[in-house]
Simulated scan of single mutants.
Amino acid sequence: MTGMRFQDKVVIVTGAASGIGRAAALQFAREGASVVVTDLDASVEATARAIIDAGGRALAMTLDAGNEGDVERMIATACEQFCGLDVLFANAGISGGFANIFDTSVELFSDVLRVNLIGPFLAIKHGAPHIAERGGGAIVLTASVAGLRSGAGSPAYSASKAGVINLAQVAAQQLSGSNVRVNALCPGLTETGMTQPIFDAAREAGKGDRIGQLNPLRRGAQAEELAGVATFLASDEASYINGQAIAVDGGLSSSHPIRRQEYGQTSV
């Protein structure tokens, strides 16, 4: 396959200041896309600068992905500056901490839903019509393995990501005939700005080798590994993948909890 899958395409990536969003934005640009990178963190400018310095085309915007006015402005700017929209990677999200149900406030729960679930809803609502006008394209939503079943996130985070998975399914159906595909990316434990404290704490405690120990690959993921799947789902190579939740978790979600037999070990 060609290394320029997004030549002459216009792509928006939210949550692009760091982590999966930044890695995906850089990859979209390397493969020919004009990229609008957005984040609430003004350091998203550094992502755009890295793309431009490498000879690509990028525009940075500081905005709230869960605010409808900001999302409308984001879509309008992409269409005005680059004459349309082909791909939208709605990746922005927040963790909401690790409190249990009984220690979680309504305010925190609402804020997590606003960013993690209403944000992707707004991206679809305002982005899909423009993608359809160009003859079709793709929307990728960042969900999580926490949205597949319990045990991988807080109540608010898990509920929001389960909603993202269902939203991808509903949107794929409601966009029937538009040639706009919608899929959800479900990362496992990935080293990003959001999860960095977990990785740092484990390493400082001398337990870095235990990161990701519950999955068969026995490690956490790097942002670039998730970005590779996001860009694949956004590309024509995934032209018949629609309404799916794709787990990228080292095999974590492939099994119920078990006592594993090690590779090469004789069964007893």
Rank of each mutant, 00 (worst) to 15 (best):
A143C: 09
G177I: 14
P197S: 05
V248I: 09
S267I: 15
I258N: 12
V10A: 06
G55S: 06
G127E: 01
D41I: 05
R218G: 11
V87M: 10
F232I: 08
P120F: 02
G153W: 00
S255C: 13
K125Q: 11
A201H: 14
D86F: 10
D209I: 11
A33D: 03
S158K: 02
G151A: 09
I198T: 14
G188I: 01
E80R: 14
Q173V: 14
I118L: 12
V112W: 03
A230I: 02
E191K: 13
A202F: 12
G56M: 04
S95I: 12
I101Y: 07
E204L: 13
R22D: 00
A76I: 11
L26M: 10
A247Y: 00
A221R: 07
L122V: 04
D64R: 04
M61E: 05
S158T: 08
A128C: 07
S105Q: 03
L175F: 07
S95M: 15
L85A: 05
G193H: 07
E224D: 15
A223V: 10
G119Q: 00
G136R: 02
T195P: 01
N116K: 02
T195I: 06
L59R: 15
D249H: 07
I139C: 01
Y240T: 15
S34V: 09
G69K: 06
A152C: 11
T14V: 03
D86Y: 12
N116V: 04
S176A: 14
G66T: 08
A146G: 13
E224I: 15
A234L: 07
V268P: 09
A58R: 02
N242K: 09
N67I: 10
G69M: 06
A245G: 11
I246H: 02
R134F: 12
E133C: 12
Q265P: 12
L167V: 06
V11M: 04
G264D: 04
L189P: 00
T104H: 07
Q196A: 13
S144T: 04
V11C: 04
L141V: 09
A65K: 03
G151I: 05
Q222R: 11
E107A: 12
M74L: 12
F98E: 14
N100R: 11
D103G: 13
V229P: 06
A162G: 13
A168H: 07
P257R: 08
D200H: 09
L88C: 07
D64K: 04
F121V: 11
D249Q: 11
G137L: 03
Q7P: 05
P129M: 10
L59H: 14
R219D: 05
S43E: 14
G119C: 06
S267P: 15
S254N: 15
I51Q: 01
L88Q: 01
A58T: 03
E191I: 13
A162C: 10
G93W: 00
S154D: 05
A205R: 15
H126T: 07
L217P: 13
R134G: 08
T192R: 01
S160I: 05
V164I: 10
A184I: 08
C186D: 00
G250Y: 00
V71I: 10
L88G: 01
A205T: 10
T192P: 02
R210L: 14
E107L: 12
V106Y: 13
N215S: 08
